[in-house]
């Protein structure tokens, strides 16, 4: 799953949101690193809707303009949980190896008297 897709599903996991709400939420979740644009967002919505991961929830009229809310489906929720678990395992593996590497580095540092 690509990062924008993961972040969109994550944004919708908290509850139904409209397009601009998803954009601001994704920006917040990613710490300002990912700034979705309308083209990317609606191409993703189109794909995710056809895959059954996202569905239209309700519509509102705000300032004379349609505002459609999207929600995560059960299937979308399952896919997001699976992906989150996969990423968590990878992150844990990476952290564990980095700890070993750092511990090994410290050990070497002690062995060489701080000149490693």
């Amino acid at each position: 799953m690509q990062e924008p897709t993961f972040l969109i599903l994550t944004a919708l996991a908290a509850g139904p949101q409209h397009g601009y709400g998803v954009i601001t939420d994704v920006q917040e979740i990613s710490g300002g690193r990912v700034r979705l644009r309308a083209g990317t967002l609606y191409a993703a919505f189109d794909r995710l809707e056809s895959e059954g991961l996202v569905a239209a929830d309700r519509e509102e009229i705000v300032d004379g303009r349609v505002r459609r809310y999207y929600r995560l489906t059960e299937e979308g929720s399952t896919r997001l949980a699976t992906e989150a678990e996969r990423l968590r395992r990878h992150a844990e593996a990476a952290s564990a190896r980095l700890r070993v590497r750092l511990a090994g580095g410290a050990f070497l540092l002690r062995l060489t008297g701080g000149e490693a």
């Binding site: 409209h18 397009g19 309308a38 967002l41 609606y42 705000v62 303009r65 459609r68």
Partner: peptide, 8 residues
């Protein structure tokens, strides 16, 4: 989605 996209 046209109206929504323009709004966004």
């Amino acid at each position: 989605h046209g109206e929504e996209m323009v709004g966004v």
